[in-house]
């Protein structure tokens, strides 16, 4: 396979990992109004949990359960969901900002644990030799990447369908009511707290799945994969794509990741070696500009959901 094509495959696998993160965040923010600024933390929980469950027995290291890889992914989802339930149970009854603070705290704590809890996470060196599904069957890493792209595509599709079924159904109807008027929803007998908590946990489970898939794609994870910049990227993707729909989440992920990758490549080409490090900051600035432009020109993102349109049309009567 030519270089460019195999690079494109690799690019898409990563983009679809981001797409999963965006789908989770779309449920939490777009459909529920939950301000999660700890996306990287839930991603990390899924990645580490999956790596520990499926990984080989390293000397002096907890884990090495060697479980089948899909079980690892489920474990990653469950771990992220449990973390979300704990954080949500503590903060979702309080004002909005508490959830933001708490999720930020989760990301920071997970980063610290990943760095310092060496017997569990491998510390700064991270965890390696994480099994990759059917890797031995494929002659080349390009073939494996192609297989993984197919896998990611089906899983993103599956998650998308599952979330769509949720928000289109009666459960989602309650969620929309809560988002619009919490007091009225409560007076109609809707348990607002429980619905928020469920939405938060399901969204986080999807982020955990993204983490597990990431770990078994790269075969190696380390704390620097889960820094705050990742949360910023995912938020930028969701806002650019449109937080009100899952299509927007997926589109935003691919579009912004393309921009991020292309600008990275350009900086590599154009900037002299001495400035490369500062080049990374330029990428962030660029995404920031795109984000600001979206907020000004198309505040609802590239894909505008139908419900919001009809509400707007009605307001303007």
């Amino acid at each position: 396979m030519p270089d460019l094509a195999s690079y494109l495959v690799f690019f898409l696998v990563v983009a679809l990992t981001y797409a999963l993160l965006c789908l989770g965040l779309a449920l939490q923010w777009g459909f529920t109004g939950l301000f999660n600024v700890g996306v990287a933390g839930f991603f990390a929980i899924g990645a580490y949990a999956s790596a520990i469950l499926t990984g080989p027995d390293y000397p002096g290291q907890f884990g090495g359960f060697g479980l089948p890889i899909p079980l690892g992914w489920l474990g990653g989802m469950a771990a992220a969901a449990v973390a979300a339930l704990a954080v949500g149970a503590l903060t979702l009854r309080l004002r909005q900002d508490y959830l933001a603070i708490a999720t930020f705290g989760v990301a920071v704590v997970i980063q610290l644990l990943a760095l310092n809890l060496e017997s569990l996470t491998g510390g700064a060196f991270g965890l390696g030799f994480i099994p990759r599904p059917l890797f031995g069957r494929f002659g080349s890493s390009t073939a494996f990447n192609l297989f993984y792209l197919a896998l990611m595509t089906s899983l993103v599709g599956l998650v998308w369908l599952a979330l769509e079924a949720l928000v289109r159904g009666p459960w989602g109807r309650v969620l929309r009511a809560i988002r619009e008027d919490e007091t009225a929803a409560e007076a109609l007998g809707k348990p607002v707290f429980r619905h928020r908590l469920e939405s938060f946990a399901i969204g986080s489970a999807v982020m955990g799945l993204a983490g597990g898939l990431y770990a078994s794609f790269t075969g190696f994870i380390a704390p620097q994969d889960f820094q705050a910049i990742l949360t910023f990227q995912v938020w930028a993707m969701l806002i650019v794509g449109g937080a009100g729909s899952f299509a927007g989440a997926v589109l935003g992920a691919v579009a912004v990741w393309a921009l991020w990758t292309a600008s990275g490549a350009l900086i590599d080409q154009l900037l002299p070696a001495a400035f490369q490090v500062r080049g990374a900051a330029l990428q962030i600035v660029l995404i920031g500009v795109v984000l600001a432009a979206t907020l000004v020109l198309r505040p609802r993102g590239l894909i505008v959901e139908r419900a919001a349109l009809s509400a707007r049309a009605a307001d303007g009567r």
Binding site: R173, R176, A177, E180, A184, L188, G189
Partner: peptide, 17 residues
């Protein structure tokens, strides 16, 4: 306090606990 963005029918269908 109807839910403005929902249809009239949806507003009512929401109600049963």
């Amino acid at each position: 306090r109807p839910f403005h963005a929902m249809s009239v029918l949806e507003n009512v269908m929401l109600a049963p606990t």
